[in-house]
């Protein structure tokens, strides 16, 4: 198992290098004049004066060739210098890492909540397929998958911040402020986890060795968790690995609804404003985090599933 994970870790730098090339080229291939977008980010109604645009290009080295710009950025990035934001003119690290910290907390908390809520719900509903609990869990999970985050978030604010003034409506920095954004972000993965766990558990409980285990008189709860739940965990672990990278930079809606200063909002604003140093660094960090999360999820899957472990060996 450790050999498999080691191979994945060794491949990560190559993945990051390829990603860096794409990340560097894609914003430039969008056909937007970066100097013009930077000017617009600073001064919303500025006229595109050629002299001003030339000064901006000179200020940020945008008049150099793409290869020169890429090598300059990469050579600085590998030693931890992410450069200065085109818009704020301050170091990218000062913008990126606080936002990354917020998104890591938000994403991790949401995924933990999704697992804690989704897995038991899926396992228990699999105990009696078609039963009352199963129908309730299925209906709730369908609702969770189908409800857009901006609707769920707004309803939660309306209920828990306006009518029952228990929690703040917006902001970030306290546990109370984190509750509603975490619940909103967790709803979709929790619903998926519940559906996936239910399907896997129903399948597992119909297998011959489980029938034998039951015939031996092993307690139903033990059968359910040892044979059904454990198998479902491996699938949910893989799913979490995939979700992690997506939620890290893709929770824009939740960040906007709750005014959370996370990576998604930073990335969105930076893409609109063609703040290339921030875009490049943020995407690279997301790719790296998603890669590590994917490897961690695979490790967890191998640890939980003896069949996968033996196949990997």
């Amino acid at each position: 198992m450790s050999a498999v994970l080691a191979r994945r870790l060794l491949a990560l730098p190559a993945v990051l290098f390829l990603a860096s090339v794409l990340i560097f080229l894609l914003p430039r291939a969008a056909g937007v004049d970066t100097a013009r977008a930077v000017l617009r980010s600073r001064l919303g109604e500025a006229e595109p004066d050629p002299d001003v645009l030339a000064a901006i290009r000179l200020e940020f080295g945008l008049d150099a060739s793409l290869a020169e710009q890429y090598l300059l950025w990469l050579s600085h990035a590998v030693v931890g210098d992410l450069g200065n934001s085109f818009v704020t003119r301050t170091p990218v690290s000062g913008l990126l890492f606080p936002a990354l910290g917020v998104s890591l907390v938000l994403t991790a908390a949401a995924l933990v909540l999704a697992a804690v809520a989704g897995i038991p719900a899926g396992v228990w509903s699999a105990r009696r397929p078609g039963g009352r609990l199963d129908r309730a869990v299925t209906a709730t999970s369908v609702l969770g998958v189908a409800t857009p985050e901006f609707v769920l978030g707004t309803v939660l604010v309306l209920v828990f911040a306006v009518v029952l003034p228990l929690l703040p409506a917006t902001g970030w920095g306290s546990v109370a402020q984190a509750v509603l954004p975490v619940i909103t972000l967790a709803a979709f993965p929790a619903a998926l986890a519940a559906q996936l766990t239910r399907a896997e558990t129903v399948d597992a409980l119909a297998r011959p060795h489980v029938v034998v285990a039951r015939s031996k008189g092993i307690a139903e709860r033990a059968v359910l968790w040892r044979h059904g739940g454990r198998l479902a965990l491996t699938s949910v672990a893989s799913l979490s690995g995939l979700f992690f990278g997506g939620l890290l930079g893709g929770a824009v809606v939740v960040e906007v609804v709750f005014a959370v200063p996370g990576l998604g909002g930073l990335l969105y604003d930076s893409v609109v404003g063609q703040d290339l140093p921030v875009v490049q660094s943020a995407l690279l960090v997301i790719v790296a985090a998603a890669g590590v999360a994917s490897i961690a999820a695979e490790g967890l899957q191998l640890a939980l599933d003896p069949v996968s472990r033996s196949a990997a060996v």
């Binding site: 309306l158 003034p165 409506a169 917006t170 902001g171 906007v256 709750f258 005014a259």
Partner: peptide, 18 residues
Amino acid sequence: ANYVSDPAARALSLRAGD
């Protein structure tokens, strides 16, 4: 000063007394 870009979120913050 809380910077809240979403107009609906600003309205809810006011209504919630935040």
